[in-house]
């Protein structure tokens, strides 16, 4: 089945790989910094257990009989569409997080909320930018005024 290793999907495998790499890298870094017990008391046992658990999950998945469930093509397409929209929104969110201090809190928030509402399915063209503008104004004047730190703004 494309995109699957036995009954373990590639994205699941990617997650397990990320956890394993994190565990190995943090252990390597901690051991390189100091081999004293005080430094390794949590990181080493946790790292070893994590690797063992991940190996267990992968072996279990490889040994299990692969049940190839025939999915309805329409259902598959819907699932793929949901995942793509999720990723699009996550990408937009990443742009917002980086944009806050580079573009300015006001413009980054306004654009993110506007586009986010349109992605969410709002069809009226005038409401999303109006709501986004009012929401941004509320955040800047209300939430932002409570911050004890300077907040870069482009327009407001």
């Amino acid at each position: 089945m494309p995109g699957r290793l036995s009954n373990l999907s590639l994205s699941h495998l990617a997650f397990l790989f990320m956890v394993a790499v994190t565990a190995v890298y943090l252990n390597w870094s901690a051991i390189s910094a100091s081999t004293k017990l005080y430094n390794l008391i949590v990181v080493v046992p946790v790292g070893i257990t994590l690797i063992a658990l991940i190996a267990g999950v992968i072996i279990k998945a490889l040994r299990a009989d692969t049940e190839v469930l025939q999915q309805d093509p329409a259902e598959q397409r819907a699932k793929l569409h949901t995942t793509l929209v999720d990723l699009l929104l996550l990408g937009l969110f990443a742009a917002l997080c980086f944009g806050l201090t580079t573009v300015g809190f006001d413009i980054a928030t306004f654009l993110f909320v506007w586009i986010g509402i349109v992605i969410g399915g709002e069809r009226r063209w005038w409401l999303p930018p109006l709501y986004a503008a009012l929401f941004t104004l509320f955040l800047v004047e209300g939430f932002g005024s409570l911050f004890p730190f300077p907040m870069p703004l482009l327009v407001l």
Partner: peptide, 11 residues
């Protein structure tokens, strides 16, 4: 709600 709360989270 979703984009508004996500923006609030970043803030």
């Amino acid at each position: 709600l979703v984009p508004s709360v996500l923006a609030l989270c970043a803030w």
